[in-house]
């Protein structure tokens, strides 16, 4: 269970995250939605202390994260970066294996785990295992990044737009596998996305952020039923608006022909 209590992050006199309180239940996936610059990444990084909050605190399973050994804390939490951040001097297998290695897993267990994870993110282990990150496409790199976050079978995951660079079909398949493993392992996760459909599909609840503040948090149904303000309403309406747009285009297209 993750609890954020009155979290604030200031740079200079500007608060980029402002008085934010939230809790994510054991096994729950919280999707975080919000415009660019609304403070999603900053919030995520304050959970595993990549960024120290200016005030407020974070509890993980009832324990203040500031009381935990940093490396211990982070090894329990899978983190997938928005900018991927693979180590360029390690090959794909070494990148995926990095946390298990730090945890002292046996070489055989690590090798098995690496192949299993590469398959899970739909990469051919034999083909990519020994490649360097710069020999992969952007989408492939992103999938390796997700595999790395999953590697040590963490109970808590922080994912910052992990499927942003994928084509829609691969993306959908990965979303499906992600839903499956999450259920199997009862992972507690915070999942940042720009994609409303992804938020609706994956999120048990959705948190909407704007200008560093939490605007509303609730189940998709609750948000649909009573959006807190106009911003949330328009955000939720996005998929439907797009569908209407597509239908309209198809209609005129049909008329052309």
């Amino acid at each position: 269970m993750i609890e954020l209590h009155r979290l604030t992050k200031r740079y200079g006199d500007q608060a980029v995250v402002h008085d934010l309180s939230l809790s994510v239940a054991e096994g729950e996936l919280l999707a975080v939605l919000g415009g660019s610059g609304s403070g999603k990444t900053t919030t995520l990084k304050m959970i595993n202390r990549l960024i120290e909050p200016s005030s407020g605190n974070v509890h993980l399973n009832g324990v203040d994260v500031r009381g935990l050994e940093l490396s211990e804390l982070r090894r329990q939490i899978g983190y997938a970066f928005q900018q991927v951040g693979l180590f360029p001097h390690m090959n794909v297998a070494q990148n995926v294996a990095v946390t298990p290695t730090l945890l002292g897993w046996s070489a055989a267990a690590i090798a098995r785990r690496v192949d299993e994870l590469l398959e899970l993110v739909e990469l051919d282990p034999a083909a990519v295992r020994d490649r360097r990150p710069d020999q992969l496409s952007g989408g492939q790199q992103q999938r390796v990044g997700v595999a790395r976050a999953l590697a040590a079978a963490p109970r808590v995951m922080l994912l910052d737009e992990p499927f942003g660079a994928l084509d829609p079909l691969t993306r959908q398949r990965l979303q499906d596998s992600f839903i499956r493993i999450r259920r199997e392992l009862a992972v507690t996760a915070v999942f940042v996305t720009h994609d409303m459909v992804e938020a609706l599909m994956l999120g048990d609840r959705i948190a909407v952020m704007r200008h560093g503040r939490l605007v509303q948090v609730g189940t998709p149904a609750a948000l649909m039923r009573s959006p807190a303000d106009d911003y949330v309403r328009r955000l939720l309406d996005t998929p439907c608006r797009e569908a209407r747009l597509v239908n309209a285009l198809l209609a005129t297209g049909a008329a052309d022909r």
Binding site: E72, R74, Y79, G85, L86, V98, T99, L103
Partner: peptide, 25 residues
Amino acid sequence: PALTEAARAVGMTPWQQLRRVELPL
């Protein structure tokens, strides 16, 4: 800096970060 941040995020201690990421790079 994105790579040193990644090193911290995967749970490396400062020493491991130096030895496994910063020095090789």
